[in-house]
């Protein structure tokens, strides 16, 4: 099935009231964010999308693909599953070596050239991590950052899913700007659950959540796009400090001044 768009129809919030956002659509190439305080139902929303909710989850939402609801049996064959959910898990529970796990997953997904795909997956993951992942390592031995990197790479390349849901990729200690950059090369729908201002402002639009309900949709305008550019500078400076600290450097006054000198506030 070729996916052109998905539609999310609102249900009810934690108080049982109808959600203010009654419907929104995602088309191929869209990048959107879901934002709101902890516990407001962001993860529940992407879980509903991933489960193709059809009034059968507590939120009473409905998900349509190309304007059609999803037949019950369709949801249960993962090899046809067009949605990859990268959850907040920072550890695997599978007692298999990385190589074997990826080989099985590639087979489940019907990959034709499994060897190349596994290689590409590990390359992608290793661009996001500090220390490289190798095939013989047990899945359960990977660090939090390595786990998230592998999950993202696996979903994009082995899963090759047209719709990718990412739950708070920023708090996994991975190179998130690099992740965004790599992800943008693939023509997919990306839905980020995030607390990160930059990821939110680089999205086409964002859904604001409160009390388990979608409150409003904000489209990213020209002003916000400019703001995102300015935030990028601050962000890059922070990342550079992180890199220096990780590399064992000292943040002396000259090092500090050198790094913040480009941070001239531009009035947007």
């Amino acid at each position: 099935m070729e996916i052109k768009k998905i539609t999310i129809r609102g249900g009810i919030g934690k108080d049982g009231e109808r959600e203010k956002v009654q419907e929104f659509e995602l088309k191929m190439g869209d990048i959107i964010s879901i934002v709101g305080p902890t516990g407001c139902g962001k993860t529940t929303l992407i879980n509903d999308i991933e489960l193709f909710a059809n009034y059968n989850t507590p939120s009473q939402r409905q998900i349509l693909i190309n304007d059609e609801p999803i037949p019950d049996d369709f949801s249960f064959d993962p090899s046809k599953h067009p949605i990859a959910l990268i959850s907040q898990h920072t550890n695997f529970l599978s007692d298999l070596p990385v190589g074997e796990f990826l080989t099985i997953h590639a087979a489940v997904r019907g990959a034709e050239n499994a060897e190349n795909i596994i290689e590409e997956t590990l390359d992608f993951a290793n661009q996001l991590t500090g220390e490289s992942i190798n095939r013989l390592t047990g899945m359960t031995e990977l660090s939090g950052g390595q786990t998230r990197s592998l999950l993202i790479a696996d979903a994009v390349i082995i899963g090759n899913s047209p719709i990718i849901l990412l739950d708070e990729i920023e708090n996994a200690g991975i190179h998130r700007t690099k992740a965004l950059e790599l992800l943008k090369k693939y023509d997919k729908i990306f839905v980020f659950v995030t607390h990160d201002a930059r990821i939110a402002l680089l999205s086409d639009f964002r859904i604001i959540m409160k009390q388990g309900a979608m409150q409003k949709v904000i489209y990213t305008g020209i002003e916000e796009r400019r703001a995102a550019q300015e935030l990028k500078k601050i962000d890059d400076v922070m990342l550079e400090f992180r890199r220096l600290i990780r590399a064992g450097e000292e943040i002396t006054e000259p090092v500090f001044n050198e790094n913040i000198k480009n941070l001239v506030y531009n009035n947007i």
Binding site: S79, A84, I104, H105, D154
Partner: peptide, 27 residues
């Protein structure tokens, strides 16, 4: 299923179907 990643779910399901090929799997 909420405790493991989607990739792991797919691999676990595959292992179940390998052992019992005609079974109906419900997650």
């Amino acid at each position: 299923i909420d405790l493991i990643s989607q990739a792991e779910r797919e691999v676990f399901r595959y292992r179940v179907l390998q052992a019992a090929k005609d079974i109906t799997v419900v997650e």
